[in-house]
């Protein structure tokens, strides 16, 4: 049982590492956010689940469950708030980008006023 938990934890830590690697490699802040949010959510989920499986005899499983739920719910919200703020203060998308519908709509509205 403990070995199984260890394997799950190891997979989770690999996803955490991939998230950090994505943060270093991606070209602009929105792509970094994509890598950071997704990989760390699943990585933390697996990491904590693995530890809970390894420590199944103690009463801490429910607390770890609450921690996992909290992270799943709040991680996308904080990245959404940050992406919105970044777009609002005008941090540009990378040169590879194809389209930016939000900037188009905003400039259209300003033109109308």
């Amino acid at each position: 049982m403990a070995v199984f938990g260890g394997i799950v934890t190891l997979i989770g830590s690999v996803f955490l590492l991939l998230g950090a690697l994505g943060i270093v490699r991606m070209p602009d802040v929105y792509n970094r956010m994509q890598a950071g949010t997704k990989a760390t959510t699943l990585g933390t989920l697996l990491f904590l689940t693995g530890i809970a499986i390894g420590q199944i005899e103690c009463m801490c499983i429910f607390r770890i469950l609450i921690l996992i739920l909290f992270i799943i719910f709040t991680n996308p919200i904080s990245s959404h708030a940050l992406a919105r703020a970044a777009h609002h203060i005008g941090i540009p998308l990378t040169d590879k980008s194809v389209t930016d519908a939000l900037a188009d709509d905003e400039s259209e509205k300003e033109g109308a006023v």
Binding site: G19, D28, N31, K38, L42, T94, S97, V98, T99, A103
Partner: peptide, 26 residues
């Protein structure tokens, strides 16, 4: 969907050419 998105991100990050084609859609 969460697992699929993580595998997707993993392949993109580990690929040396970094195959992205980003943009904001409505």
């Amino acid at each position: 969907a969460l697992v699929r998105s993580n595998l997707d991100i993993a392949f993109r990050v580990l690929n040396p050419k970094l195959p992205i084609n980003p943009g904001i859609v409505k």
